[in-house]
Every structure is written in C-alpha cells, then in structure tokens.
C-alpha cells in the first residue's frame, strides 16, 4: 500500500466499505446491528445491498455483498473502488474455512490496495475456533496486512470495538471517546438485581428496590437519577427490565450518551429475551447477554 493510496483513503469525505464473506457468515446481521443496536434475523442477501451511515460528519457506504456462490463474482467489482474491506467468517463453521480461504485468495490482489479486517463472527457460541486457528485456516499470515476481531452479530459482542478500528483506518481520526461507566446493572421490573458488571456496584442487593418504591410512594414519580459518593447513577425502565449505569461525576456532561447506551441495551434485552413477557427470566442467559453487549459500553 503506497503513501498515495493511504492519503487518498483518508482525505476523501465519502468512504466505501465492502463486506464480503461466505453465505450465512452474518454480514447483513452486522449491518442491521449497527443500524438498530440489536439482533435481527435476515433472509439471504440477493446480490448486494447498500446502506449509508453518517458518522461524525463522514458518509460511509456499507456495501453488503451476497455470499452465495452465484454472487461472489461481484465482489471484485465492488472492491475496486472501495476504501476498506471486511471479510466475515463464521467462526463456528470450521467445515467451511477452506472454502472461505479460496474466496479470500481470489480477492487478495485487491486487498493489497486497501485495509482488510477479518471479522470472526458468532463468538457467542461455545465451540468457536480460536483467532489463531482462524488465521492459520484462512492463510491470513500470507496477506500483506490484516486485522482480525472476534465479534457476535447476535449479542453485539465487540461490534463497536471493531467499528472504531475500521473508522480509524478509514479516516485517520478516532471516534469520539465514549464514556467509561463504572458499572452496569440489570434488574427485573420489580427492582431486584439480576446481573451487574461490577461486584462492587454502588447499589447492592435490594437497595434499589427499596429506593424506587420509596420514590414512587413519596413523590408519585419514577426514579431517573441519583447522586451518591461522587457518582451519578442513571436509571431506565423498559417493559420487563430496569437498568442502572454508574458514571463518575467528572463524566456528568456525558449523561445523554449514558442514557442512550442504557436505553439501547434494554431494547436489546427485550428483543433477545421474549420469555420475560411471561415472567420467565433465565438469569444465566441474561448475564451472558449483558456481558457480551457491555463490550460496547465498558472498555
């Protein structure tokens, strides 16, 4: 990759990212996760689909290529004028690593001109290949440069982390620093804590339930914010869950972002836990979902 290529890539305001990979790797699911903040099950992509995102003043065209054999010949044409390439691989489908390697080899000459990120998807599953195993199976070490990130387009694991890296490679600038929450806790609708990212969460046990019912009784309103020992605790409620996010008072200006992040997490949990409608909450599943999703909120 020459200096001219790098400059051209960074200076241009409009960026084009082409997402390739075998069928059923999760390409469309990733694009929709970036748009909606949660998992949506898709039908296969017919040919290609294009979505435009505007991120910090930069217009990014995400071109999602169909992964079926019939559509793979289209990849080269789209990569020709792209600034970034993503190759998505199903990390749980070892039987198709060889096929993935063959397809990656076919576009390898184009990948010398633009950065490549390999996304090892389905890292929410138990029996996934390790990153080392994927590098070897796909022969990535033979490429001039690449980066590989494990993600899950179902739980959201590492999606923001991957996108931050892509954004930096594309534009030469960092995505604005997100806030650093101290803890994230999810409660059932009665206020009983179900899971927390911190064992030293500011709110312990049933304290939250007691505070919320006190506020409800005394002020006839819902608790939305609490200041405690140099921390601000933001509360949000969805249909079947409640959540709190603890941020340091020095991050007080990022309150909107914290609220938005918590809101998105609660929407994601409602989507992923339909059984909560019938008051059947699987705490292990919920804990896992929060752990995976919080990779986007807590670094």
């Amino acid at each position: 990759m020459g200096i001219r290529d790098i400059l051209k890539r960074i200076v241009s305001k409009d960026k084009k990212i082409v997402i390739t990979g075998l069928d059923n790797a999760g390409k469309t699911t990733m694009v929709s996760f970036l748009q909606t903040g949660t998992f949506i099950e898709h039908t296969p992509t017919m040919g290609k689909e294009q979505v435009t995102l505007e991120v910090q003043g930069v217009r990014i065209d995400l071109v999602d290529m169909g992964g079926q054999r019939d559509f793979r010949s289209m990849w080269q044409g789209e990569l020709d004028d792209a600034q970034f390439a993503i190759f998505m691989v199903d990390a749980a489908d070892r039987a198709r690593f060889k096929e993935a390697k063959t397809e990656l080899n076919k576009i390898s000459s184009l990948l010398q001109k633009i950065p490549l990120m390999v996304l090892a998807n389905k890292y929410d599953k138990k029996d996934v290949a390790s990153i080392k195993e994927i590098i070897e199976a796909l022969g990535l070490q033979e490429l001039s440069s690449f980066e590989i990130v494990p993600i899950s387009c179902k739980t959201g694991y590492n999606i923001v982390k991957a996108f931050r890296k892509i954004y930096y490679k594309l534009t030469g600038s960092q995505l604005k620093k997100r806030l650093q929450p101290k803890a994230l806790t999810i409660f059932d609708k009665g206020g009983v804590p179900l899971t927390s990212t911190s064992s030293e969460d500011v709110l312990k046990g049933g304290l939250f339930a007691a505070i919320t019912s006190f506020i409800k009784e005394s002020f006839k309103s819902e608790l939305s914010q609490l200041k405690l020992e140099g921390n601000t605790i933001i509360f949000k409620k969805s249909k079947n869950f409640m959540g709190s996010i603890v941020i340091d008072d020095s991050e007080y200006k990022n309150l909107d972002e914290a609220e938005q992040g918590l809101d998105e997490l609660l929407c994601h949990l409602e989507n992923m836990c339909p059984e909560a409608e019938e008051d059947k909450i699987d705490e292990e599943k919920l804990k896992f979902l929060v752990e995976q999703y919080s990779t986007n909120l807590i670094e």
Binding site: D23, N24, T43, P44, M46, Q68, R69, D70, R96
Partner: peptide
C-alpha cells in the same frame, strides 16, 4: 426463491 440454507442459489 433464494434459500436460506448454506450453498443455495436463486432459482
């Protein structure tokens, strides 16, 4: 149809 199964193609 374009099948959702692995290895499908439009028909």
């Amino acid at each position: 149809k374009l099948g959702g199964n692995i290895g499908s193609h439009p028909i």
